[in-house]
Write a protein that binds this DNA or RNA. Structure first.
Length: 425
RNA sequence: GGAGAGGUGGCCGAGCGGUUGAAGGCAGCGGUCUUGAAAACCGCCAGGGGUGCAAGCCCCUCGAGGGUUCGAAUCCCUCCCUCUCCGCCA
């Protein structure tokens, strides 16, 4: 959420951001609503002041007639206050949905446009030339018996799956390797709950309601299944005043992630690329405002080190405004080369790193105290993927397959997996 | 699931219905002392909001929401949450 007080002074910028993001919000209505809220607030403050003065006068000894008059006046004031409070609550309620609909500011370098209009920042690694006909990860699984979507569909539904055999080891090994990389970079590891209170989910600006919701809710409770450990890690410091000396805070979380994938039927839906549940190691950072841009780069650097270790060719892209989520000020995705994606191979999203500036912190009420300034400030929050297991498995299988149907395991992963290859069978 | 206890400032923890926005402690900040540091001692120090160039002034907040009262952190009701014990259980 933005600070409603800056709406007016940065109005044009916000309107432009909404347009770039293809978000339809009435910024002027929000400005007007906020004005009404402050007007009533001011009026209420004055009335409360009168009431307080009146009450102070009631402490004296009063004769019965005076007391009676005093009491009557007190009742009158009380009613007026109640009336104003009611109006204030109503105006606040009107402002709230408008504020929630307004996305974060936009980084000046974020490209305009939609999903296809990203800026490519760099490419690392050469897509491999195969001297045989490579298979996609589903076909490889057919040979190697690594996952079972039929059983997943039977037991849980479309896009649910079982990993089997070496794929299970791969899932565990990738997590373990990722944890080593993030710890090396100073991100303290956590396992997190796979559910969170709606209040926390809301605070991170994931909307669990509405038909396009990506979030599963647990009926009869106020809990949602998390879509990413960003939610639980961010929740840790909700409603907290941190010391400047504690920043930056680097955390990482191992969790399962659940996504309804509402509205994405048929979209890149082959196999493990888009599923309802997956395991992920996530980085989450809390910084001072002036440090968030550097932290963003730091997170991307960790992501790159991991992909380099896995010998997956990739490119880093700066996501266009129209493809950013509401909380993201700027987002860098890393797309890994997937030989069987599209027609003759293509890059597909493997990780994603966002700088959410103070957008999440404002709703979460995560602030910090500077050593020398009395005014407390909201922190900046950032998140990035260390490993999203299924997609990484896709990239490893497809990139490192061999003509005999086996898969070579990258050297850096071998000790974690305990294998130099999978198959052939 | 059953029984009980409790939710107060960055943290811990007091708090007869008006003098408590809140004792005390810790942490933090400033100072005295010290070659320096520690210790000791002295002082300052809740958060949010409105208004103002500013100093300041004002309002709100003791889990949330209602109620009683001229007046509630203190009394009543509802809800939420946390903890302890018992049961069940990986």
């Amino acid at each position: 959420m933005l600070d409603p007080r800056i709406l007016e002074s940065r109005r044009d910028e916000i309107v432009a951001s909404c347009k770039s993001r293809r978000v339809d919000v009435d910024v002027d209505a929000a400005i007007a609503a906020h004005q009404r809220v402050t007007e009533i607030q001011t009026e209420l403050n004055g009335l409360n002041q009168r009431r307080n003065e009146h009450q102070a006068g009631g402490k004296r000894k009063l004769d019965p007639a005076e007391r009676e008059a005093h009491v009557a006046e007190g009742r009158q004031l009380k009613e007026e206050v109640a009336e104003l409070e009611k109006r204030l609550a109503a105006e606040r309620a009107a402002l709230q949905p408008l504020m929630l609909a307004i996305p974060n500011f936009l980084h000046p370098d974020s490209p305009q446009g939609g999903e296809a209009d990203f800026n490519e920042l760099r490419r690392v690694g050469e897509p491999r030339k195969f001297d045989f006909q490579p298979l996609d990860h589903m076909a490889l699984s057919g040979k190697l018996d690594l996952f079972d979507f039929e059983a997943g569909a039977k037991v849980s539904g479309q896009k649910w799956y079982f990993l089997k055999n070496e794929a299970v080891l791969l899932e565990l090994a990738l997590q373990r390797m990722a944890i080593d990389f993030v710890m090396e970079a100073g991100f303290a590891p956590f396992t997190t709950p796979d559910v969170a209170r709606k209040e926390i989910v809301d605070g991170l600006a994931f909307s669990p309601r509405g038909s396009e919701s990506q979030i599963y809710s647990i009926e009869g409770t106020d809990l949602d299944l998390i879509g990413t450990a960003e939610i639980t890690l961010g929740g840790i410091n909700a409603d907290t005043l941190l010391d400047e000396a504690d920043l930056p805070l680097r955390m990482s979380g191992v969790s399962h992630c659940f996504r309804t994938e509402a509205g994405s039927a048929g979209r890149e839906s082959k196999g493990l690329y888009r599923v309802h549940q997956f395991t992920k190691v996530e980085m989450f950072a809390i910084t001072r405002p002036e440090d968030s841009a550097a932290m963003h780069d730091e997170i991307v650097a960790v992501e790159e080190r991991i992909l380099q270790a896995l010998e997956i060719p990739y490119r880093v892209i700066d996501i266009a405004a129209g493809d950013l989520g509401a909380p993201a000020y700027r987002k860098f995705d890393i797309e890994g080369w997937m030989p069987m994606r599209g027609d003759g191979g293509d890059y597909g999203e493997l990780t994603s790193a966002s700088n959410c500036t103070d957008y999440q912190a404002r709703r979460l009420k995560t602030r910090f105290r500077r050593a020398d300034v009395k005014k407390n400030e909201f922190v900046h929050t950032l998140n990035g993927t260390a490993i999203a297991v299924p997609r990484t498995i896709v990239a490893i299988l497809e990139n490192h397959q061999r003509s005999d149907g086996s898969v070579a395991i990258p050297a850096a992963l071998q000790s974690y997996l305990g294998l130099e290859r999978i198959g052939p069978r």
